[in-house]
Write a protein that binds this DNA or RNA. Structure first.
Lengths: 411, 411
DNA sequence: TCGCTTTGTCACCCTCATGAACAAAACGGC
DNA sequence: GCCGTTTTGTTCATGAGGGTGACAAAGCGA
């Protein structure tokens, strides 16, 4: 009796968690995988082998000799250089960006930046997807999925952009549906995902950036226009029951402040965005560089080592104080253990970290006892990497799905 | 060869989820258990049998003939009448309450209410635990654990009450530690758990009350003094990274409002608590009934069918409007799919549901498109039931732990 | 060179849930 | 009243999946 057993393939259930550990850089070796996963060495070995045969990771032939350690050195687990990628796109007020992103949040290839967004979402997304498809053809990589970041609240699970007004797109555009159709037409047969840009940046910061290891991570960022927030709880993006959570732009930070289009006064949105800083400093928006870049430059120059005039310093201080009020309100409600700031808010933090941190502590109820660390974001293109995370998620949940991924279009 | 296998005991891993389904009333029969658990009938049967031998549930001998259904009728799964209980205690500004709570949130026995709380937490908790131990002796029930609800922010995981000021307890009292010591001294050898009263009421409403089935549940309630909030996400209480989340009392709801001890003005806390309503209506606090009861009575009388004067109606409307502002702010940040109101807030909702709901929709950004249902709480003693939930949680996670529970003290 | 420590792998075993067959308990139609 | 039909509950063999313990491998230091 030849017991032709077809391969037991141990460690199937632990496959997803294992890949996530490698993906987020928390499992450099099989030994670490063993402890992090809470399984035996045998299982961890089987899991690593399985991920290797799936073409997602590689195991070093020669173990890297870790200095000062005893015992047999462990082979390093690295993300496969020629593994599959996700197609990621970010649309913002001043243009769009397209890239291929591998596991580990590594940007593998980038299309030339585009500085114009067509007011018809179908046209704009067709352009973006075409750029992505060209990248796939050029690199010959397989594609596991596609993700899109937009500066708008996006409903779940249907993926409708409620207010993509800075793009001059119609409110309520079914962005996910349009995106998926564009992918089909471009011959990229993958699922399309869609999310708010700040939410996705927060996800990316949590997995690969300044939010790494935080339990309750709050992100607040100015984009090119307005303010957005996001929350990552236990590694999962909290988008609320309908995807509309963390609409923080309309927290009141100055009851006597300027009127906001929402009908209230002194909202975080109008008090701490790029335009607010330029106006407060008595500057006109200059011709070169985006509004965001100009405001960031001004805030940085207002730091201790900076060269700004007293006007700019005063305006920056005022914005820091209002941001502190807004963050304190959020701390009282969400009690995060880390806050990552992006865009102009990041520049404000870097201009005077002490003032912002003290302001938040003063205005939050448990400022003294609760300990929240406030840090700047570290990713250059967080929204882009986060969009890729959406596309990667099904693979992280069940790595064997990569087997269903066909070769890139055009090969 | 007598293969003396010690009983295979199938369905061990699904035991916890199964008990939770019965506990929350979502699995009345084995057939439902099968579908809800996503397992086969064989497994569901084994699981039910195991829970039965653990003494947690009972299976009807005679199947209840469901009207109008085909096929063999299913036996009903009910919570065992003589099963173990949790010791639950709630301390509030005007006294404390102690009860034994079985699975399903059913209050099995209650100690006579006490109207005084000793300013030394150790003394007060000794009294409360003594009342609980007496109940255990009187009923002869086994005890799986003990839970305590206090009107204060409670840190996690150490269980320190940061501001139990309405109890005249010292700020920073290590309540969980004291509670555990009292249990030991009273001869109740179980673990003690501790939480904020509104948080626990929210948990109870989610599992057994008006919050049942909600994905993202927000609870806001006035206690006897002040305002508290709580959030239940995917069935788990969100208490933030340090247990200090949902400190909603100091949201600004009226920039020109009365000063609050927090240094700001027009906080939800001082604008919508019982005292605020009485003052706005031009009433002095009467001698009989707690402040909370008097305020609730006034609000109810101000409803459409009520008998209140114009002063009371105007004051009630004003409070409803301010509450609506506060809730809208929370909706913008948290995007819950349901809001459960308790205490005076519940009375305000019931006085004029339309006004409150419209107010929230008007002030929230997605009021029209997002759909949040706002409902009154349905549990009489939510905090007490919620405190019991804390004690039950280890059993819900792994029902076999009840085997380690010893008989009640004094038998 | 020999211990010592840690990593990786193999053969065997144990747990748990599945799937299929069978039995049980209702209902409806004739 | 008897017979299909439907749904529920149980029994038993099977298989997936991970644990266990022994052994080999690969470094370090004496």
């Amino acid at each position: 009796m030849t017991t032709s057993r077809t391969k037991p393939e141990r460690g199937r259930n632990a496959l997803g968690p294992a890949l996530e550990l490698v993906h987020t850089g928390r499992a450099p070796t099989r030994a670490v995988l063993t402890t992090e996963l809470g399984v035996t060495r045998a299982t961890a070995g089987a899991v690593a082998g399985e991920l290797q045969t799936l073409g997602l990771i590689t195991v070093d032939a020669r173990p890297g000799a870790a200095a000062g350690s005893q015992g047999r050195p462990s082979h390093r687990l690295t993300i496969a250089d020629d593994g599959p990628v996700a197609l990621a796109a970010q649309i913002h007020a001043d243009g769009f960006r397209v890239a291929l992103v591998g596991l580990g949040g590594r940007i593998v290839a980038t299309a030339p930046a585009c500085g114009e967004v067509h007011p018809d979402p179908a046209v704009a997304l067709t352009e973006a997807v075409a750029a992505g498809a060209a990248l796939l053809r050029a690199t010959g990589r397989r594609c596991v999925g596609a993700g899109l970041a937009v500066p708008s609240a996006v409903t779940e699970p249907d993926g409708i952009a409620l207010n993509p007004l800075h793009l001059r797109w119609p409110a309520g555009s079914p962005v996910r549906e349009i995106f998926t159709r564009c992918l089909e037409e471009a011959g990229v047969p993958v699922t399309g995902f869609c999310g708010n840009d700040v939410n996705l940046a927060a996800l990316a910061e949590h997995r690969h950036g300044a939010g790494h290891g935080a339990r309750d991570l709050l992100c607040v960022a100015t984009g090119h226009r307005g303010v957005g927030g996001a929350l990552v709880l236990d590694g999962r993006l909290h988008t609320g029951s309908a995807g509309l959570a963390l609409e923080v732009g309309h927290l009141t930070v100055d009851p006597a402040g300027r009127p906001c289009h929402c009908g209230s006064r002194g909202c975080l949105d109008v008090e701490t965005d790029p335009m607010a800083l330029l106006e407060a400093a008595g500057r006109e928006p200059g011709p070169d560089g985006s509004l965001l870049d100009q405001a960031c430059a001004l805030a940085r120059a207002a730091g201790p080592a900076g060269t700004a005039d007293e006007n700019a310093r005063g305006a920056t201080r005022a914005l820091i104080d209002r941001l502190a009020r807004g963050l304190a309100g959020l701390v009282n409600i969400l009690n995060p253990d880390r806050i990552v700031l992006g865009g102009l808010h990041r520049a404000l933090l870097e201009a005077d970290p002490g003032r912002l941190r003290a302001g938040v502590a003063d205005h939050s109820l448990w400022g003294r006892s609760g300990s929240v660390s406030i840090v700047p974001g570290t990713l250059d293109h967080g929204s882009l990497v986060g969009a890729a995370e959406l596309a990667w998620q099904p693979v992280l949940d069940d790595p064997s799905t990569v087997l269903r991924v066909r070769a890139a279009a055009g090969t």
